[in-house]
Amino acid sequence: SFQYVPVQLQGGAPWGFTLKGGLEHCEPLTVSKIEDGGKAALSQKMRTGDELVNINGTPLYGSRQEALILIKGSFRILKLIVRRRN
């Protein structure tokens, strides 16, 4: 089963996490790295392996390109929903 975790990061880029996968690579869009001391790490809500399913209220369909555009369009606040295996 899965758990959906809301994450809100503040203060602008860099957000402190790296993505891998996506439709382009025929795999889920997941968090591959969280930078020590970065905003994602400080939130204590994101983990490597989390799947990104929503950015700023926009549902994602797995495209890494789409996710990067939405993330780049976030100035002060980035709201994410990640899906994690229980």
Score class of each variant (00 low, 15 high):
Ile34Tyr: 03
Leu52Pro: 08
Glu27His: 08
Gln44Arg: 11
Trp15Phe: 07
Leu19Asn: 03
Asn56Gly: 06
Ile71Phe: 05
Val31Asn: 04
Gly16Ser: 02
Leu42Thr: 09
Ala41Arg: 07
Gly16Val: 02
Leu42Asn: 11
Ala40Gly: 01
Val5His: 06
Gly38Trp: 02
Gln65Asp: 13
Arg64Trp: 09
Ala41Thr: 05
Cys26Gln: 14
Tyr4Met: 09
Thr58Phe: 08
Phe75Leu: 12
Ile81Phe: 06
Asp50Cys: 00
Ala40Arg: 02
Lys45Ile: 11
Asn56Gln: 07
Thr58Ala: 10
Ala40Lys: 00
Leu23Val: 14
Arg84Thr: 05
Phe17Lys: 00
Asn86Arg: 15
Thr18Glu: 13
Asn86Cys: 11
Gly49Leu: 00
Thr58Ile: 09
Lys20Ala: 13
Tyr61Glu: 15
Leu68Val: 10
Lys33Glu: 14
Val31Trp: 01
Leu42Glu: 12
Ala41His: 13
Gln10Asp: 14
Arg84Lys: 09
Leu29Asp: 03
Cys26Asp: 14
Cys26Phe: 12
Leu60Glu: 03
Gly37Arg: 10
Ala41Ser: 11
Cys26Arg: 13
Gly37Asn: 12
Tyr61Gln: 15
Trp15Arg: 02
Thr18Ser: 14
Leu42Ser: 10
Lys72Asp: 12
Lys33Ala: 11
Lys20Ile: 08
Glu51Lys: 07
Arg76Ser: 14
Val7Met: 15
Glu27Phe: 06
Met46Ile: 13
Gly16Phe: 01
Thr58Met: 13
Gln3Ser: 11
Pro14Cys: 04
Val31Thr: 02
Met46Cys: 01
Gly11Phe: 02
Ala40Asn: 06
Leu29Gly: 01
Gly73Trp: 04
Pro59Phe: 08
Leu23Trp: 11
Ile71Asn: 05
Gly62Phe: 00
Ser43Thr: 10
Asn54Ser: 07
Lys33Trp: 11
Gln44Glu: 11
Phe2Gly: 04
Val5Gly: 04
Phe2Asp: 09
Ala13Asp: 07
Leu70Ile: 07
Gln8Lys: 13
Lys79Arg: 13
Gly12Cys: 04
Ser63Pro: 03
Arg76Gln: 14
Ile81Pro: 05
His25Ala: 14
Gly38Tyr: 00
Thr30Phe: 03
Met46Val: 08
Ala41Glu: 11
Leu80Asn: 03
Arg84Val: 01
Val82Tyr: 00
Val7Gln: 02
Gly22Val: 04
Leu9Lys: 04
Lys39Ile: 11
Cys26Met: 10
Thr18Trp: 12
Leu42Ile: 09
Val7Ser: 00
Lys33Tyr: 10
Gly57Asp: 12
Thr18Asn: 08
Thr30Met: 11
Phe17Ala: 04
Thr18His: 13
Ser1Pro: 08
Ile77Ser: 15
Pro59Tyr: 04
